[in-house]
Design a protein around this nucleic acid. Structure first.
Length: 437
RNA sequence: GUCGCCUUCGUCUAGUGGUUAGGACACAGGGUUUUCAUCCCUGCAACAGGGGUUCAAUUCCCCUAGGCGAUGCCA
């Protein structure tokens, strides 16, 4: 049985870089029909927090990463928080002390006199031993290990110790983690040997640069609040370390589990490419189910006061569909749709300039005249009208289209007018034009 | 400092002992009856350097340089 785990320290939000630890393990569990375990490594008492742990669980759930076992759902190897497993670590540490693999360390007392009751740390005696282990991605790794602390003088285990004990006790079969642990793994292998544990199988993936922990804008929480789609984030995170063989960069990994293999992880540290992320995110917005975007967009539109609860969904979907090609996350929709909901404000200088041209008046008069003879405004009707205005007035190109765009939207940029106008509707178009003729 | 890992277009990458070294993002040009954008087409652009091994090296080996990581009573 494959059992993998995501073992974050609950000290902040997860972002698009470190979500890969959860994602890669989860994908592997899915592929192998194994189990996914969450363990909170909260032994850094200073920085760990309950809220952070909860936030991580929520963010992952939103992405579709769920756990078979963990502090929030329980499981046969509970507890799943390291601060609740302190007795366990103590027990194993004492064993190592007895077997001579470890010794007491009083260096934290500096010049104080050591007595029977003095607190002590426990140091593992690695004796410069050379360890060779196999990594699925990097192959044979050879590393000499120095002595290191396994229990702090406050009774809390260090990461290296707790991780080995827990992975063994929780029957973790594969450890998939960042290559910042490539060297540390030798320590873990040594500890396993000393404790008589079987080492899990290791796979280390490359690190990502350009994603500072301090940059909150790349946290999963923040991306979610901006209305990025979770599928896009999963896709981008996958690309940070793994590429499908056919080179297809937009993909749903859950449909391609067969292809996924940790041994194909990239060995090279990569830079996070925000441009590409934005591009991919936009692709997902364009292809998403319109109802889904509608649901996500409503809160943003309500907040801006563009709509109210009685605004028709059909109308909204039309609006969303016509502007979705210009956004990468749903929140950006509010930058593109004001004129569909509010009266147009013609104060923008460049727009006024267009409208005040003599040619523009000619175009708009003709447009008004033709529109007022129509009963129903469709894209085709609008296109035909534009053509006949051109034919009759001889005005074409920019001089033809800009006044129309300006009068109907108050902007110089936007989607094709023949798509915009039918959504606005005949009545609104006529009244806006009427203001200028 | 010591130890470990890595090094293909600007960026993310595919790939091979003999290839026109492929794709994507970005960028540039063109097209889609106007603009921004979308979409389509075209173009630009890479095997870090030096030694080997070999008939042949981007691919294998060594060295150098560079990058990253570890070296904590952080995880």
């Amino acid at each position: 049985m494959v059992r993998v785990r995501f073992a974050p320290s609950p000290t902040g939000n997860i972002h698009i870089g470190n979500v890969r630890a959860a994602l890669f393990n989860y994908i592997f569990a899915k592929k192998m029909k194994g189990q996914m375990i969450l363990r909170l490594e909260d032994t850094d008492l200073e920085r760990s927090s309950e809220e952070s742990g909860q936030g991580i669980i929520e963010d992952l759930q939103w992405l579709g990463i769920v756990f078979d076992e963990g502090p929030h759902v329980g499981g046969p190897y509970a507890p799943y928080k390291q601060t609740q497993r302190l007795d366990l670590y103590r027990e194993y540490a004492l064993k190592l002390l007895e077997s001579g693999h470890a010794e007491k360390d009083y260096t934290h007392l500096e010049n104080e006199t050591i007595t029977e009751s003095s607190s002590y740390a426990i140091r593992f005696k690695a004796n410069q031993k050379k360890v060779i282990y196999h990594d699925l991605v990097f192959g044979e790794i050879e590393k000499e290990v120095e002595d290191f602390i396994i229990m702090k003088s406050n009774g809390i285990p260090t990461y290296h110790f707790a991780v080995v004990i827990d992975d063994h006790l929780m029957k973790i079969s594969h450890v998939i983690r960042g290559q910042d642990h490539l060297g540390n793994t030798a320590k873990h292998v040594l500890l396993c040997e000393a404790l008589g544990f079987k080492s899990p199988i290791y796979a280390h993936y490359s690190l990502t640069h350009g994603l500072s922990k301090r940059d909150a804008s790349k946290s999963i929480r923040s991306l979610r609040e901006k209305g990025f789609l979770p599928e896009a984030i999963i896709n981008v995170a996958m690309l940070l370390g793994w590429y499908p063989k056919d080179g297809q960069e937009k993909f749903n990994i859950f449909n391609r589990l067969e292809e996924f293999d940790p041994k194909d992880f990239s060995k090279v540290n990569a830079n996070f490419d925000e441009e590409k992320f934005n591009w991919l995110a936009g692709q997902y917005i364009r292809e998403a189910d319109i109802h889904k975007i509608l649901l996500l967009a409503k809160p943003f539109l309500l907040e801006k006061g563009f709509i109210n609860t009685s605004t028709q969904d059909d109308y909204l979907m039309g609006v969303i569909d016509v502007v979705r090609g210009n956004i990468k996350c749903v929140s950006e929709i509010t930058d593109h749709v004001e004129y569909f909901f509010k009266e147009v404000n013609y104060q923008v200088e460049s727009v006024r300039e267009v409208l005040e041209k003599e040619e523009s008046k000619t175009v708009l008069k003709s447009l008004y005249d033709k529109l007022s003879h129509e009963k129903e405004l469709t894209a085709e009707v609008f296109q035909n009208i534009q053509k006949s205005i051109q034919k009759e007035t001889g005005i074409k190109g920019k001089n033809l289209f800009m006044p129309i765009r300006s009068v109907l939207t108050g902007r110089l940029h936007g989607p094709e007018m023949y798509l915009v106008a039918p959504i606005l509707g005949l009545e609104k178009c006529l009244s806006r034009i009427n203001e200028y003729i």
